[in-house]
Structures are given as structure tokens and as C-alpha cells.
């Protein structure tokens, strides 16, 4: 309100309008003032909507965050007493206070390793093919639509597929390899979509610049497309992995055990060739299954174990998401167009 005299003064001087010859030349000025009042009224009304949405948005955000915070804090409080170093180095046990998550976190880590090794090359290659190589025709269109649909298929369906294909058909057993492959299938659409989005954000004039110098398709992909889209791809991969790490249904479907009191064979051995892939065939359990197992016990002491394991699992997910943000920041810093 304090500003109004100044803004009125910035209107054309009165002498200007009164040259129209009318003695009461202030008419125009008065009209201008009335119009200003009207415009301010319109702005005030429009801004009211701004405020209303601002508040509604804040509430929506607060509700979401509060729910998550409550869950997280509740879990942390319930499990706090069990979060000791021993909890990470002990196998599950019939006695709640001696039970730990060693086999679960090792299993989860190994399964995730297999998932990443399979999903990243396949997903990135498929994404690059669709963006850079695929001819634009109806076959490509159908493939694209189906990839989007695959991302929405319930995870238990992937479990059923894996049970039939990997466990029975290929006889891979109820192993880390089977679980890793299953989760890789599950996140493949996420990786493909993320790769395509990242590639599409590269402006066409950069691509044309490379082609104009005589580069082949693969040279353009290798020297430009891949390096410039790496940030987006890595982000997509990690977000996909963060989804896979909490998946329970497909893992149960392929028959992961709920009680594992041993570790898979070590990948590094003392004898030549020092690397062993025996662990791939090992039975295993993963974090969500361990949590599920403990929650279903009647003894409340086991519920504390479940809360503690849940806390660890959420931390793992958050760490992965944090890593994704950091990576994106690091890579984007060196790319500008």
C-alpha cells in the first residue's frame, strides 16, 4: 500500500493527457486510478489462490513426510536396543536376543550385485538401441509401449516367471543367481526408461555436431551419448536397485529360505584362479525375508529384531538414493550446453 503514490507518479504526467483539450482533463487520470484499483483487486484475488495452493501443497508434503518420519522413528525406537555390532555379525537364531542379520545382509548384497551386473548392461544397451539405432516404425512403437507397461507389472508375476523359467526350466535352483536374475528383470524397464530419458535430454545440435565431423553411430554413442547421459543413467539404475532391495514377493516365490545359518562360499579363494563363482549357486536369504520371518513370530523380542532390521534396510535404501543424488551432481557439473 505504501508504494501506491510512487507507482501512480510513474504514470504519464497529467499535462500529457489533458492536451486533449477538455478543461476537466483529470478525467483520464481519474480513470487511470480507477483502473489501477481494479487491476489490484484482480491481482489480490488471483494471489489468494496462490496462498491457498501453497498451504495445501505444504500440508500434502507434511503429511507424507510425517508418516514416513513416524514410521522411521518408531522402527528406530523399537529396534534401538538390538542395533549392536553383534546384530550384524550373528546368524539368525531361535533365541531372539542372539539372532542377527549376517546372512540377510550378505544375501541382499550379493543378490544386488548380480542384479546390477545383469540389469545395467542389458538395460543401458536396450535404451541406447531404442533411442539411437531403432528404426521409427510400428514395431518399435509396440516395444516402447510394452516397456512402459512392464514397469507396472506386479512383482509377484516376475516371481512366477522366474520360478518357471530359472528354477525349473534352467535348473538354476533357489539360488542367489536366480534371485539376482529375477530382480534384474524386475528393474530392467526402470533402467531402460531412465537411459532413454537421459539420452533424450542431450540436445540434437550436440549430436549433429558430432555426426557432422564424420563420426559413426557407435562413435557418437561412445564419445558423446554415453558420457553425457551417464549421470541420468546411474540415477535410474540406483533408484531401480533401491526398489529391488526391498522386494519380497518374487524372492519368496522362487523359494528363498527364511532360516539360513551359513554364508555362501567366498568369491575370493586362496588358490588359483583366486575367484570362485560357487556363491552364485548358494541358497540365501535377504533382508525383507528376514524381517518378514521375524514379524510372524509370536515372541515380541523377535519384533524388536524385525524393527532393527527394518531400520537397517531403510538406511540402505536412503544411502543408495543419496549416492544417486551425489553422482548426478558430480557428473552434471561437467556438462553444460
Amino acid at each position: 500500500m505504501k508504494q501506491s503514490p510512487r507507482s501512480l507518479r510513474s504514470l504519464p504526467p497529467r499535462g500529457h493527457v489533458s492536451t486533449f483539450g477538455r478543461p476537466g482533463g483529470t478525467d483520464m487520470a481519474r480513470m487511470a486510478r480507477k483502473d489501477i484499483g481494479e487491476i489490484r483487486g484482480i491481482i489480490a484475488r488471483a494471489k489468494r489462490l496462490d496462498v491457498i495452493f501453497g498451504v495445501a501443497g505444504l500440508l500434502a508434503l507434511g503429511l507424507g513426510l510425517l508418516t514416513f518420519a513416524t514410521l522411521f522413528v518408531d522402527m528406530a525406537l523399537d529396534g534401538y536396543s538390538r542395533l549392536t555390532p553383534d546384530f550384524f555379525t550373528e546368524f539368525p537364531s531361535r533365541r531372539a536376543e542372539r539372532a542377527g542379520i549376517l546372512s540377510a545382509w550378505v544375501g541382499t548384497t550379493l543378490v544386488m550385485l548380480v542384479t546390477a551386473c545383469v540389469a545395467v548392461p542389458l538395460g543401458v544397451a536396450a535404451g541406447i538401441y531404442l533411442e539411437e539405432y531403432a528404426p521409427r516404425n510400428w514395431v518399435t512403437d509396440i516395444i516402447e509401449i510394452n516397456i512402459a507397461n512392464l514397469a507396472g507389472v506386479p512383482s509377484i508375476i516376475y516371481g512366477l516367471l522366474a520360478l518357471g523359467l530359472f528354477v525349473y526350466e534352467f535348473s538354476l535352483g533357489q539360488s542367489i543367481l536366480t534371485a539376482g536374475l529375477t530382480l534384474a528383470l524386475l528393474i530392467l524397464p526402470v533402467v531402460i526408461v531412465a537411459t532413454r530419458e537421459a539420452i533424450r535430454s542431450i540436445p540434437s545440435h550436440i549430436r549433429e555436431g558430432a555426426y557432422a565431423l564424420g563420426a559413426t553411430k557407435w562413435q557418437v554413442v561412445q564419445h558423446h551419448i554415453l558420457p553425457y547421459s551417464m549421470g541420468g543413467i546411474m540415477t535410474g539404475v540406483i533408484i531401480g536397485m533401491a526398489r529391488a532391495i526391498g522386494e519380497t514377493a518374487p524372492i519368496i516365490t522362487i523359494g528363498a529360505l527364511t532360516f539360513i545359518a551359513f554364508l555362501p562360499a567366498s568369491p575370493v579363494t586362496g588358490t588359483f584362479p583366486f575367484l570362485s563363482f560357487e556363491w552364485l549357486q548358494s541358497p540365501f536369504t535377504v533382508m525383507p525375508i528376514q524381517i518378514f520371518n521375524w514379524t510372524s513370530r509370536p515372541d515380541p523380542n523377535f519384533h524388536a529384531n524385525a524393527a532393527a532390521a527394518g531400520f537397517v534396510l531403510v538406511l540402505m535404501t536412503l544411502t543408495m538414493n543419496g549416492l544417486a543424488i551425489w553422482l548426478r551432481y558430480r557428473i552434471r557439473r561437467n556438462i553444460k550446453w
Binding site: 545440435h205 550436440i206 558430432a210 555426426y211 557432422a212 565431423l213 563420426a215 562413435q219 558423446h224
Partner: peptide, 28 residues
Amino acid sequence: RMRLSMVFQKPNPFPKTIFENVAYGLRV
């Protein structure tokens, strides 16, 4: 394209070093 070069409407350097930008045609 190896015999004829092109300069575009909008400057389109690659997000690489000055050296690598100029050297790119040779590397290809």
C-alpha cells in the same frame, strides 16, 4: 562428412575440453 565440415547456427561445442573439441574430428 569427412570431406565437408559444418558450422552450426548455435555454437555447439561438446562438453569436453577446448583441446578435445578441436581434436575430435581427428580422433574420429
